[in-house]
């Protein structure tokens, strides 16, 4: 219907990419120090690779207010086993995502930590205790060793971040672009034994 000139198309694409960049940039902003991975390691037992990790969760004021107001806060734990490559991106062999939800139970004045994957729920009377309990990962089964390639120098990495998509919808537009909700650790990498 309309014939666009090359120039117009170029302008349009530039505007589009600028807009898309604007939307995506906050997602890739470097991790806020609120979340940390202190240590992480894997060990094998009975042909299964287990993960032990020590994470530190802490919430900023916005998150605390939301939590106290009954908004559940979901953290996403992402573990990847990968084969590092020199010139191109690393080859991810297995990827595991675990979600932990922290919520406040007003009636009992307890903080509930729910492992969404397993459904196990624990309650804590103190938020910090709840978060430190959430930060202790002990013997989390990751993958069967048979699923991993033999004789390859494999590495694993772990990262924890706040799951914005699990927030209530009205909060999300703001959370997408606000740094308050960009809670994420950096990747913590170690050699897979």
């Amino acid at each position: 219907m309309h014939c666009f000139t090359h120039k117009q198309v170029a302008w349009f694409l530039m505007a589009l990419s600028a807009m898309t960049g604007l939307l995506c940039t906050p997602l890739t902003v470097l991790a806020n120090p609120n979340l940390k991975v202190y240590s992480a390691s894997t060990h094998e037992r009975g042909n299964v690779v287990y993960l032990n990790a020590q994470l530190e969760y802490s919430l900023n004021e916005a998150a605390v207010t939301a939590l106290q107001s009954g908004v559940p806060i979901t953290f996403k734990l992402k573990v990847e086993i990968f084969q590092p490559r020199k010139w191109i991106w690393d080859k991810v062999i297995s990827e595991h995502v675990h979600r932990y939800q922290l919520s406040y139970h007003a009636l009992t004045q307890q903080y509930l930590v729910t492992n969404i994957s397993s459904g196990i729920q624990n309650s804590y009377s103190d938020r910090n205790i709840a978060m430190s309990a959430m930060g202790r990962i002990y013997n989390l089964a990751l993958v069967a060793t048979t699923a991993l390639p033999q004789q390859a120098d494999l590495q694993a990495r772990i990262k924890v971040s706040l799951d914005i998509n699990a927030l209530p919808t009205p909060m999300r537009p703001w959370a997408y672009i606000s740094s308050d909700w960009k809670l994420s650790s950096e990747w913590y990498t170690w050699d897979l034994v």
Binding site: T65, S69, G70, A106, P170, M171, R172, P173
Partner: peptide, 24 residues
Amino acid sequence: VQQYYNVYTQLNFLRGQLKNSFML
């Protein structure tokens, strides 16, 4: 009571953002 209290406090907390979201 807990459930509705939770919903209410959550809505109350989200009031501004809800309005913004609707307005958006």
